[in-house]
Write a protein that binds this DNA or RNA. Structure first.
Lengths: 149, 149
DNA sequence: CACACTATGTTGCAAATGCAACAACAAGGC
DNA sequence: GCCTTGTTGTTGCATTTGCAACATAGTGTG
């Protein structure tokens, strides 16, 4: 019967829909929790941390363009985030010898210290918000999510 | 040895961390894709849709406060979203007999039509962004995510 | 070299956001 | 009744965001 086929299709699509709903609801919720922890410790937010992390991790001065690619951020977002971090003395812009348009970004001593201090709050905050699931579930979660990207 | 224990702990925490990273990266990415589909069709974004959906689904006029609870939104966000929808003629505010502060929100005919039209774009857009995983994976994904909330 | 084209980064502007303060009302105790 | 406390919804303000335009510089082609 036609009805049975439609019902079957509906059930099949339902899981994808439920997952979509859960994804859009849970991700911002957890982010808010972690951001709140950083805020309560007097630190910048996750967006700033990810910039500090990426520069630190690069091991050598890195260009804003590469930061954008690495962190999936639009140029203007990188540009303004960097501006704030430079104003706060966490990052310095070096002249880029290969391309007079760009800069090379480097952490200051203060910037490196800040990132480490933030990590000491960030790390347990992640563990905390993720504590509801087991490690093997987390592994599955990561695998499935990455396939969606 | 001490080192072995530390390594073991690190590996254990790694999955949670990977899942956290994936979650924060993939959720906004997919949302952006779906929002783009709605935009290209000339429709409001997902935030507006969720309001329309919640009012429609309630079956009876509903108060902004209840919308906030249902959609996990702060009051001011509901307030402004509603303002826009009222200005656009999609929603009307009725006087609330039980509480002179609040209103009862109702979709106009145009609002109902808009929600349906948006759903015709939204539904396949979800199916599209979720098409990378199987239905059973989606079921697991939803289950695990909901446990994090 | 001159030219068109692409890439990088910044900025003006309008819209959206978050916060805190606010007005208006409800609920409950006395 | 009156007063205190909590709730609901809105708004002023400063900050942030997204878009598009822009300036500047690299890239490639003839």
């Amino acid at each position: 019967m036609q009805i049975q086929r439609n019902d079957a299709e509906k059930v099949l699509e339902e899981n994808a829909h439920q997952a979509w709903i859960a994804l859009q609801r849970v991700a911002p919720l957890l982010q808010e929790r972690v951001d709140l922890e950083l805020k309560r410790a007097g630190f910048p937010d996750l967006a700033a941390y990810s910039i500090l992390w990426a520069i630190d991790r690069a091991g050598a001065p890195i260009r804003p363009r590469d930061l954008g690619v690495l962190l999936f951020l639009p140029r203007y977002k990188v540009s303004r985030q960097i501006d704030r971090l430079v104003d706060d003395g966490q990052v310095i812009k070096l002249k880029c010898p290969e391309d007079a348009r760009g800069h090379l970004l480097e952490l200051t001593a203060s910037g490196r210290k800040l990132r480490k201090a933030m990590w000491d709050v960030y790390r347990p905050a992640i563990a905390n918000v993720m504590s509801g699931i087991t490690e093997s579930e987390a592994a599955v979660l990561a695998k499935v999510l990455n396939r969606l990207a």
